[in-house]
Amino acid sequence: MSRAEAAPAGATAVPASAAARRWGLSLLISEVTTTFRRWRTLALLGVLAAVPVLIGIAVKIETGDDGAHGGGGPAFISQVTNNGLFLVFTSLAATLPFFLPMAIGVIAGDSVAGEAGSGTLRYLLVAPAGRTRLLFAKYATTMAFCFAATLVVAVSALAVGALLFPLGEVTLISGTTIGFGEGLLRALAIAVVVALSLVGVAALGLFVSTLTNSGVAAMATTVGLLITVQILDQFPQLSAIQPYLFPHYWLSFADLLRDPVLWDQVLRNLGLQALYAAVFGSAAWARFTAKDITV
């Protein structure tokens, strides 16, 4: 009480800072900076940045001898030599099935369990961070990492593509040609859709993270679940359940390279991600707000 009275009574400053405090803006900023200052986070982003470099160099060497096209490899790879911008699409298509969600799994899995394991969770809670607010800050930070990771892949791919290959007009899947500027816009849209595709796995990782006090166990479980679900998505016999698996529509982002854009699968993907976020976000909240913190 004495603190509330002690707060300066500036007419305009107080409502703004009061709102910022209620939403825990300080905590969110602290959470984001703490996560992005860790060597582990930077290493994950470094690995993701290296993927487009490897693909770009591989494509350059492959086409150096100008032999017949193999036709294998990730989507769009055959077009990279004509237009460096396609390296962005190729790299996102190559990293989305495993590299990106694995990185998200590490960050999300460690988010609560890692703090519990090191004991810092109890000090955040007696600060008092508030369990709901802390969980929200953790999820928002994981989302920020989803966008950062996708952006790192896209920007690295664009840089490598511009260095190794010509840039220019983009021929879409449907055969239409658009200018480089619009191509860049579509690349940006694709990056956003890819980042949003990771919302589901982030919520799943957060939930797993509230179940254990070991960060490593939570990361391993999340990544294990990801691999299992990816394998299940391959069996035609399981076609009945596949539309409900979170990676099922991931590669639908390619539909943004059609003219006109085919929204059907893209929207289905985003809806599925929202469903996963709602289900596992609620489960994480129910678990975390009722949990006895004994470490």
């Binding site: 300080s26 905590l27 900023i29 090191s118």
Partner: peptide
């Protein structure tokens, strides 16, 4: 219980940021 990768000062800053009344 501390964040080993943060300095002493940054540890305190983080715990203080977790207090919505601070």
């Amino acid at each position: 219980a501390l964040y080993g990768f943060l300095s002493g000062r940054d540890n305190l800053t983080r715990f203080d940021a977790a207090d919505p009344t601070a």
